[in-house]
C-alpha cells in the first residue's frame, strides 16, 4: 500500500540574520505498510517522526525540502497526487484535540471531513451518525465544541474524522499521549480493528509498549533514520531476535524488561556524525562503524542498518 524509501526532510532556516542553512531532520527513513497491517514507527519524542505524516500528506511547511521516494498503491506519490488523495485515500488521525477548530461543533467537523473525503453532501449526515454510533459517541455529542469533550471522546471524534471518508491508509500521529489506560486500550483497539477491516495503518508513536500491543511490524526511528524494521514478535525475551543494538537497548529499557537505561542522547540534526548515527552510544562500536553510514539491508524478515548485525 505505502512504500517509503530513503525519505529525507530538510528545512532551510536562517541563522544569524540572513545566513541560510539547511537543517536535515529526517535523513534516511524507510517504511513499508501493507493493507491489513498496523506498522508502528517508534522514536523518541521531538525527533521529527511526525514529519513523516506531513510528508506523506504533502502538508510540510514551505521551507521544507523532500528527498527520497514515497509510493502509494504502486505509483509514486507526487505533490499533485498527495493533494488529490489526502482525505480520500489517505487520512490522518491527529495527535490532539488542538487539531479541531475551537469554534465549530465536533459533529460539524466530522461532517466536513466526510465531504472533503468525497462523501456526497446528501448522505454526509448519515455517514457521520453511523460513525458516531460505531465509536460509541452519543448523537448529542455532535453538538459539543472541542473544549467540551473529554480526552477519550476527543480520540473517538478524531478517529471518526479519519474513517468517514473511504481512506485506505490511515496515519495515526501519537494516538496515545497522556491518555487514561482504558482509553489507550480502546484507541489501540480501534486501530487494530481498522487494519483487520482491510485498511493499512501507520502509527507514529514514542510509546513502544503501546506499539507492540497492536503493531505487526515496528520500525525504529533514531536521529532521522529507521535503524530497523522488525516483526513485532521479535520483541521477546532478552531481545535476541532483534537486529539493531538501539532496538535492543529500547526493548531492555522498558520497565517490564529490566529498566536498563541507555546513556547519552541522540545527536542533534545539525551535528550528525559522518558514520553510523548510533556509533557514539553503541556497545558494539568499532572503527569501521565511523567511516560511513551503514545502508539498510534485509535480515531475518526485517531490515537493519548495522554492519555488526
Amino acid at each position: 500500500m505505502l512504500q517509503v524509501q530513503g525519505l529525507q526532510v530538510s528545512f532551510t532556516v536562517y541563522t544569524q540574520g540572513l545566513r541560510q542553512r539547511r537543517l536535515t531532520v529526517i535523513t534516511d527513513l524507510d517504511v513499508t505498510v501493507r493493507a491489513g497491517e498496523v506498522v508502528a514507527i517508534v522514536g523518541a519524542s521531538g525527533s521529527g517522526k511526525s514529519l513523516l505524516a506531513h510528508a506523506i500528506l504533502g502538508i510540510l511547511p514551505h521551507n521544507a525540502e523532500l528527498g527520497g521516494s514515497i509510493s502509494f498503491q504502486g505509483k509514486p506519490l507526487t505533490q499533485a497526487r498527495k493533494e488529490a488523495l489526502r482525505g480520500r485515500a489517505i487520512a490522518l488521525i491527529p495527535q490532539t484535540v488542538a487539531a479541531l477548530d475551537p469554534l465549530m461543533p465536533v459533529g460539524e467537523q466530522v461532517r466536513l471531513a466526510a465531504l472533503r473525503g468525497g462523501v456526497p453532501a446528501a448522505g454526509a449526515r448519515e455517514v457521520v451518525a453511523a460513525s458516531f454510533a460505531r465509536y460509541g459517541l452519543a448523537p448529542e455529542a455532535a453538538r459539543l465544541h472541542p473544549f467540551q469533550v473529554s480526552g477519550g471522546m476527543a480520540r473517538r471524534v478524531l478517529v471518526s474524522t479519519a474513517v468517514v471518508g473511504q481512506a485506505r491508509l490511515l496515519i495515526a500521529d501519537e494516538p496515545t499521549p497522556g491518555l487514561h489506560p482504558e482509553v489507550v486500550t480502546e484507541t489501540l483497539g480501534h486501530l487494530r480493528e481498522l487494519a483487520d477491516g482491510g485498511k493499512a495503518v501507520l502509527m507514529i508513536t514514542h510509546d513502544i509498549e503501546a506499539a507492540l500491543r497492536v503493531a505487526d511490524t515496528v520500525a525504529v526511528f533514531y536521529a532521522g533514520t529507521t535503524v530497523e524494521q522488525a516483526p513485532a514478535r521479535d520483541f521477546a525475551g532478552g531481545g535476541e531476535a532483534l537486529r539493531h543494538p538501539y532496538t535492543r537497548a529500547l526493548w531492555r529499557a522498558l520497565p517490564s524488561q529490566g529498566f536498563v537505561p541507555l546513556p547519552g542522547a541522540q545527536p542533534a540534526p545539525d551535528a550528525l556524525p559522518p558514520g553510523c548515527l548510533f556509533a557514539d552510544r553503541c556497545p558494539l562500536v568499532t572503527a569501521a562503524c565511523r567511516v560511513a553510514r551503514p545502508p539498510a539491508r534485509e535480515l531475518r524478515g526485517g531490515t537493519v542498518r548495522c554492519i555488526h548485525a
Binding site: A53, H54, L57, I59, E83, R86, G87, R88, A91, L92, P94, T96, A98, A99, L100, D101, P102, L112, A113, R116, G117, T161, G165
Partner: peptide, 12 residues
C-alpha cells in the same frame, strides 16, 4: 494553525 493543517490533511 493546527486545525487548518489538519483540514488540509483532510483535503481542504
Amino acid at each position: 494553525s493546527d486545525y487548518a493543517l489538519f483540514a488540509r490533511a483532510q483535503g481542504a
